[in-house]
Amino acid sequence: MTAQPSLEFGQIRKTSLISNILQDALTVFWGDWLDLRVRIAQVAASGLVSPLIYILAFGLGLGSALDSAMKPPVGNTYLDFILPGMVALSSMTISFGGTTFSICGERLYSKTFEEILLLPVHPLALFLGKMMAGVLRGLMTSASVILIALLFTRNLGFISPLFLLVLVLNCAVFSGLGVIVGLNVKSLEGVGLLNNFLIVPMSFLGATFFDPQTLPAILKFIVYLLPLTYTSTGLRAAAYLPLSQFPWYSIPVLLTVAIALSAVGAYQFSHQRD
Rank of each mutant, 00 (worst) to 15 (best):
M1S: 05
Q4F: 07
P5E: 06
E8Q: 15
G10S: 15
I12V: 10
I12E: 15
K14A: 14
S16Q: 15
S16D: 10
I18M: 15
I18N: 09
I18P: 06
N20M: 13
I21T: 04
I21D: 08
L22G: 09
Q23W: 10
D24E: 13
D24G: 09
D24T: 02
A25F: 04
T27W: 11
G31V: 15
D32R: 08
L34Q: 06
L34V: 07
L34A: 12
L36V: 00
R37A: 12
R39P: 10
V43A: 04
A44M: 01
A44K: 01
S46K: 03
G47H: 00
S50R: 09
P51V: 10
P51L: 06
L52P: 03
L52M: 15
I53R: 04
I53G: 06
I53M: 13
I55R: 02
G59C: 06
L62N: 01
S64N: 09
S64G: 00
D67S: 11
S68D: 14
A69W: 03
M70F: 11
M70N: 08
P73D: 06
V74G: 05
G75S: 04
G75N: 00
N76D: 12
N76S: 12
Y78T: 14
D80L: 08
F81A: 03
L83W: 02
P84L: 12
G85P: 01
V87S: 00
A88R: 04
A88M: 00
I94M: 00
G97S: 14
G98W: 03
T100D: 03
F101Y: 10
F101L: 09
L108S: 05
L108T: 04
Y109E: 11
S110V: 04
F113V: 07
I116F: 12
P123A: 09
P123H: 08
F127D: 10
F127T: 06
K130S: 04
K130N: 13
K130P: 08
M131E: 11
G134K: 07
R137N: 01
G138E: 02
M140V: 06
T141K: 06
S142I: 07
A143N: 07
I146C: 13
I148R: 07
A149P: 07
A149M: 04
L150Q: 06
R154Y: 09
R154P: 01
P161Q: 04
P161F: 11
L164P: 01
L165Y: 00
V168I: 15
C171E: 03
C171N: 03
A172G: 10
S175F: 05
G176W: 07
G178A: 10
I180P: 02
V181A: 10
V181N: 05
G182D: 12
S187K: 08
S187Q: 08
S187M: 07
L188C: 00
L188H: 11
G190M: 13
V191N: 02
N196K: 09
P201H: 06
M202D: 00
F204K: 08
F204V: 05
F209D: 01
D211Q: 06
T214Q: 14
L215M: 14
L215Q: 09
L219H: 00
K220W: 04
I222V: 15
L226G: 01
P227Q: 01
T229Y: 07
L235H: 11
A237W: 08
Y240K: 05
L241I: 01
P242N: 15
L254Q: 14
L254P: 04
L255G: 13
V257E: 02
A258P: 00
A258R: 05
G265I: 05
Q268K: 13
F269R: 03
S270G: 01
Q272T: 09
R273D: 12
